[in-house]
């Protein structure tokens, strides 16, 4: 079994790879973690991870710069039903459009726009930067046995924009930051987290383990 982490020049690839390696080591059937820029490798992988740190438009440009990558991902996820995890901007790229500074086309896997978060009160600073609990909206195998809710564990967020999903059914969890912020989206064989599981200590590693075990 293999999990391909797409290297498209965006941010914290090294941390993401190390967290997946750590989680994979604890599996009954160890998964091979491959960091790759090669569309063919992504197409053949059993699981696909799109990490992401940075601005939406810049990340989209980076992804498009890898010839054939978007097609390979789309084919693998949409037609071959490979499990997919998008992280932070990698999750936002699943949306129809990004509206960070400029309007940029997303992958359009989850219908909706990526828009600036707008807390009700002004004492909520932007970016939403730090640890927050998650409120489960819909059960999902990747969230199994994770302590969620106001008394649950925390996930680490660093973002100013979030995915405003058109279909409520696509939202699996939210975080409260002066209003609901989309924390996890998912449909079919894909899931995306606005927070950084690779930076969320034990909670994050547990979520990554669940993703590696997930057989949709």
């Amino acid at each position: 079994m293999s999990v391909a982490i797409i290297d498209y020049g965006s941010g914290n690839l090294h941390s993401a790879a190390k967290a997946f390696e750590r989680a994979a080591r604890g599996m009954e059937v160890p998964e091979k973690v491959i960091v790759t820029r090669d569309p063919e490798t992504v197409y053949r992988a059993d699981r696909i991870v799109l990490p992401g740190v940075g601005a939406f438009a810049d990340c989209r440009k980076g992804l498009d710069a890898l010839d054939g990558m978007v097609d390979a991902m789309t084919e693998a996820v949409r037609n071959k039903a490979r499990p997919f995890l998008g992280i932070c901007v990698g999750m936002q790229l699943m949306a129809t459009r990004g509206k960070e500074h400029v309007t940029t086309e997303g992958l359009n896997w989850i219908e909706g726009d990526v828009v600036k978060i707008t807390p009700r009160e002004e004492n909520f600073k932007i970016p939403h930067m730090g640890w927050n609990t998650l409120d489960m909206v819909r059960e999902h195998p990747v969230l199994e046995r994770l302590p969620l809710g106001p008394k649950g564990r925390h996930a680490y967020f660093v973002h100013s924009y979030h995915l405003n999903a058109v279909n409520e059914a696509d939202v699996l969890a939210s975080a409260d930051y002066g209003g609901a912020v989309t924390a996890i989206v998912g449909r079919d064989t894909m899931i995306g987290t606005q927070f950084h599981p690779e930076k969320s200590q034990r909670f994050g590693l547990a979520l990554i383990s669940n993703f590696l075990k997930w057989k949709p």
């Binding site: 941010g11 740190v53 940075g54 601005a55 810049d58 660093v158």
Partner: peptide, 8 residues
């Protein structure tokens, strides 16, 4: 900020 995003 334009290159890497304001958050970092």
């Amino acid at each position: 900020a334009e290159k890497f995003g304001e958050q970092c």
